[in-house]
Amino acid sequence: MIGVAWWLSWPKTSLPESRKVAVAAQVMSLKPVVERPPVGEEIVQGYASAKTTVQQDLTLVSRVLENFALLVKGDDPLPLGANEEIAAALRGRNRMQMRFVAETSPIFNAKGQIVDRWGVPLYFHAISRDRLEIRSAGPDQVMWTADDVQRESDGTFLSAEELQAPSLLEESLLHRKGGRK
């Protein structure tokens, strides 16, 4: 209590007027801190809009993943697991705890999955630690049908016929039938 009274009674020194103006100018020049959107938001701008195609959407997702891998350094920056694990890494659950895409981004559904323009979770197939195939269920919203769209790791897209290639069993049966004629 005595210390507070002593401090209050201490004569206050005043800054010279020119210094007050300089300090005031410096304070006024400080800009308010503006939170910037996550880096990946710019990349996915326009995702699933009427102006884009499903192929363009898959390319945007691929670019987000490529840029994420560049910024989050290390041996395996991107989890090679399920859709939910990749989505969680983009939303900040990664080694650097960097939020790369906003929770409200159109690439996510309410369950935290990365979805196509029809709201169906995308299917990711890891070719290697830095190469992914990305597949959309297509307009019928059913995965593994003829209207699916798949972006290969080299940026090309498979046609419906290529996506519906017969299994090895089917090819074997067709070959056997052809050999018996």
Rank of each mutant, 00 (worst) to 15 (best):
A69M: 15
F100L: 02
N94C: 00
Q141I: 01
A48F: 02
V64P: 10
V33F: 12
R19H: 13
E152G: 10
Q164Y: 06
D57R: 08
Q141K: 14
T53K: 02
L174H: 14
D76N: 12
T104S: 14
G138E: 04
E162L: 11
Q150C: 15
R135Y: 03
L58S: 07
F68D: 08
P38R: 00
V64S: 12
V115S: 05
N109P: 00
S14Q: 13
A126Q: 05
L15N: 12
P16N: 06
A82H: 14
V44Q: 02
Q141Y: 02
S29L: 03
D57G: 05
L58Y: 06
R95Y: 02
S153Y: 11
R93N: 10
A22G: 04
S62V: 04
K181I: 14
A126L: 01
F100G: 00
E162N: 04
P77A: 00
F157R: 05
F124I: 06
W7V: 11
R63P: 06
A69R: 15
A50H: 04
V149H: 04
L70F: 13
W10S: 06
N83H: 08
A50M: 02
I127F: 04
D75R: 15
I43H: 06
T104I: 00
L70S: 13
D57I: 09
Q26D: 09
T13R: 14
V149A: 03
T13D: 05
D147S: 03
V61G: 04
I114L: 09
P106W: 06
A165L: 10
K181M: 15
N94S: 01
R99W: 01
S105D: 01
Y123I: 08
T156A: 13
H175Y: 15
E171L: 15
L8N: 04
G46M: 04
D148F: 11
M98L: 13
M1W: 07
K181H: 15
R180V: 12
Q26L: 13
I43P: 06
V4L: 11
R117Y: 04
L71I: 12
R129I: 09
V64K: 11
E42L: 14
A137S: 09
L132V: 02
L163I: 12
G179E: 15
R131W: 04
L169M: 13
A82M: 14
E17W: 08
A137T: 03
A89W: 05
L71V: 13
A88G: 00
N83E: 07
I107W: 03
L78T: 09
L65S: 07
S136D: 03
R135D: 04
L80K: 10
L78S: 07
G40C: 02
R63H: 15
V149K: 05
L60A: 06
D75I: 14
T156Q: 14
V4N: 06
E84T: 10
L8W: 09
K177C: 03
A110S: 14
R131F: 08
D57W: 08
V23G: 01
L70A: 14
G138M: 07
D116T: 05
T104Y: 08
M98V: 06
I43G: 02
D140A: 07
I107G: 01
F108V: 08
Q113E: 13
D140K: 11
S62L: 03
E41P: 04
T156M: 09
T156F: 08
